[in-house]
Structure formats: structure tokens, C-alpha cells
Design a protein around this nucleic acid. Structure first.
Lengths: 125, 125
DNA sequence: TGTCTGATTCGACAGACGTCAAGACAGGCG
DNA sequence: CGCCTGTCTTGACGTCTGTCGAATCAGACA
């Protein structure tokens, strides 16, 4: 990732984000929207949504790229690109161990997003 | 981007969608991903995320376009375009009453999305 | 009827996105 | 060392997206 920091924010939502009163409870301020929208955007592709699920639901909490790639009818570079998108959105972490690279979900941000979308149970459908 | 459905799917997620065991619990099947990803995608823009919040948190559960538009530094057509995107994603409903058009959130799909992102509280950050 | 206001649609444009092939990089092994 | 396998980066291509101005549609009202 030998790039300048400008293009790769690598959001850290684990800590001081102006987090998550439910979307339907208080109006989301522009700054919060700017921070969280990229995470939703990252989940807004069917392939990435499945990748996210495969990683988050994997045994041991992590998944190897070598297991993810063959699950799709896409080339390796394309999967790698999607994983990079998830990484830059702060949704997953990557770690190289020997030959293989493992991806791990970051539950904190998932909880934030879920909290944002939470709806009062008394609200009608 | 992936495919593009003919034109206006206008997803109805209120009923028979193969809904929502949490993303981290069971791997999301391709069909479910294809149905839900567009909803996340619709929320993946800061303007739409704020629009969604303004609508969902509005008094009476609905918001007039005339109240939404001036909250942004964007033209009317652009706001209208974003609202159309939210509508096509099944996140909101529109209703014209006289001169004004009112938008109303659809809690059911918000609940589905929130459920998908739910994480076991025992999971570490 | 005509006109005014609010909202959407249309047409166009720059920029971003998803995808692939080809190449580069990293680590293991002979 | 060289070679192999797994992963990522680069460069390119076509499509989609966000935005605007202009035109159009829908009601209200005189």
C-alpha cells in the first residue's frame, strides 16, 4: 500500500466516532454521515456483502483469501480489490501469516451500523 | 458495478424476503445478498443517509420534500434523484398530498438490515 | 382558462466503480 | 540461488453515479 495517506483513510470507528443514536431517533449530522456512509457503501455490493458474511461467520473469526476466492465466479484481483474496499471502510482487518492472508471482521463497526439502523419496535411496518 | 436490473425493481422487503440471520452467524446466500445489497448501497451516500435519517426521525414519521431540500447545498433535482434512489431501494415511500410530497420511512427493511448486521455481544472488538 | 409554486424527469458531463489481464511482490521449498 | 504458489498492484475498459440546468408535470388558486 505504498501510497500517500490522502487516498486511504482506513477509518477507525472503534473509538471516538460520534456514534450511533438510531437513525430514526435523532437526525444524523453531516459529519457522522460522511464517516459512516462509506461503510454502508462498502456493503452495497453483493460480492462484498457475501465476503463480509463469509469472513464474519468463519470459524475462528477469520477467513483465508484462498477460501474466499473460489466461492465466486470472479478473478483473484477482483476479489482482492473488494477486500481492499472492505479494509478501507474499516470493516475488516488483514494479516499475512506465511503464504496466506487472513481477513478478520471488526465487530465494533458492525455494531455501530446495526445501532444506527435500529428501529423502535413500536413503529409500524 | 454488477448488473443492473431492467429499470425500477422497487423492492418489497416487507414480506417474503429470505430474511436476516445475522451476517456473522450464517453465510449470506447470493440471492439474499443480491436483494439486500442495493439497500446498503442506497445508504452508502452521505446525502441519502442524512435524508433517510431526516425522514425516519421526523415528527409524524414523515417529511416534506420542501423541508428536506433546503437542508442541503444541492439543487432540487439532485435531492429528488436521491429520494428516488431511496424509494427504489425500498427504504421509503412517497405520497403526494396536494401541492407537497411527503416521504415516510419503512421500518421493516431497516429492521432487516439492522438484524443482518447484529453481532454477538460476546464477540471482541 | 391562465399562472404560480413545488416536485420530478430529461439530457449532459466529469468522476467513480467493477472487472479483467498482465505484471509485481512475498514467502516457502528444492 | 531459482522456482513455484498465493496475493496484491497496475493499467485499461465500459458502465454506473452524482450533479446540474432546462424542460415537464401536478395541484392550487384567482
Amino acid at each position: 500500500m505504498s501510497k500517500q495517506a490522502a487516498s486511504l483513510p482506513v477509518i477507525d470507528l472503534t473509538a471516538d466516532t460520534p456514534c450511533c443514536p438510531p437513525l430514526a431517533q435523532r437526525r444524523v449530522p453531516a459529519e457522522t454521515a460522511a464517516v459512516l456512509a462509506p461503510a454502508f457503501k462498502a456493503l452495497g455490493d453483493p460480492v462484498r456483502l457475501q465476503l463480509m458474511s463469509m469472513i464474519a461467520s468463519a470459524e475462528g473469526g477469520e477467513a483465508c483469501v484462498c477460501d474466499l476466492t473460489p466461492a465466486f465466479d470472479l478473478t483473484g484481483p477482483t476479489i482482492s480489490h473488494h477486500l481492499k474496499t472492505l479494509r478501507e471502510a474499516g470493516l475488516v482487518d488483514a494479516e499475512r501469516r506465511g503464504t496466506w492472508v487472513y481477513y478478520r471482521a471488526r465487530p465494533a463497526i458492525l455494531r455501530q451500523l446495526a445501532g444506527l439502523l435500529t428501529v423502535d419496535p413500536t413503529a409500524a411496518a
